[in-house]
Structure formats: structure tokens, C-alpha cells
């Protein structure tokens, strides 16, 4: 890329990285006291599971070139995760399942 383009790129990057950093670090720095409220702490405990679930379904079905292939990957991932296989085994086997379905 040309120099001008690279400088424009760096400006975009600064905005992108700046927002992403502040959104993580500010709340982390500001919240110092332990939250005593049982409702709020339970709410925060559930947030990661809810976020990951909402991010995964239905987006996972459109994450590859074909929906049937994605469904195959999804099913394989759920079965392996249920059997408590590691993150990497689950995720690579899901990719392998997609690959196999895409071959046919």
C-alpha cells in the first residue's frame, strides 16, 4: 500500500484499538469494591455463558460456505463438548466435520 493509505489505516487502527482497549480496561480499573448484592453477582456470573451462547447461535450455521456443513460442525462440537473434550480438540473436529461435508 502507498504511504498515504498506510497513514489512513493507522488512524482507523487507532480508533479501533482505542475503543476496544477502553471498553475493557476502564470498567476493570473503576470497579474496586466487591459487589455484595447476590442478584448482581449472579447476573455477572451468567454473562459469559449468555454472551457465548448468543454469539454462537444462529451465527454458527452461516459460518461456512454451506448450512448443512455448518450444522454438521455444530453437532460434532456439541457432542465433543458434552464429553468434555478440550477446546482445541472440539474446535478442530468441528472444522474437520465441515471439511468432510464440503467435500461431498
Amino acid at each position: 500500500m502507498e504511504t498515504y493509505d498506510f497513514i489512513l489505516f493507522l488512524k482507523y487502527l487507532a480508533v479501533m484499538a482505542g475503543v476496544t482497549y477502553l471498553i475493557r480496561a476502564l470498567p476493570f480499573i473503576v470497579f474496586r469494591k466487591k459487589i455484595e448484592n447476590a442478584f448482581i453477582s449472579a447476573f455477572l456470573d451468567y454473562i459469559p455463558y449468555a454472551v457465548l451462547a448468543a454469539m454462537t447461535v444462529p451465527a454458527i450455521f452461516y459460518s461456512t460456505a454451506s448450512v448443512p456443513a455448518s450444522v454438521a460442525g455444530f453437532v460434532v462440537a456439541v457432542i465433543l463438548a458434552y464429553r468434555e473434550k478440550s477446546l482445541i480438540v472440539t474446535s478442530l473436529c468441528a472444522s474437520a466435520a465441515v471439511f468432510i461435508v464440503l467435500l461431498f
Binding site: A53, F74, A81, Y82, T90
Partner: peptide, 20 residues
């Protein structure tokens, strides 16, 4: 086809965290 298959890797990881 390889790049496509890797598209699901991220979600596979999410599932591996949540389901157990």
C-alpha cells in the same frame, strides 16, 4: 475449502467452553 472449514473453529471453541 480449507479456509471455509476453519470458519467454524471459533464457534467450536465457544461451544467447548459453555456445554461442559
Amino acid at each position: 475449502i480449507v479456509c471455509d472449514s476453519l470458519g467454524i473453529a471459533l464457534y467450536g471453541m465457544f461451544i467447548a467452553i459453555v456445554v461442559p
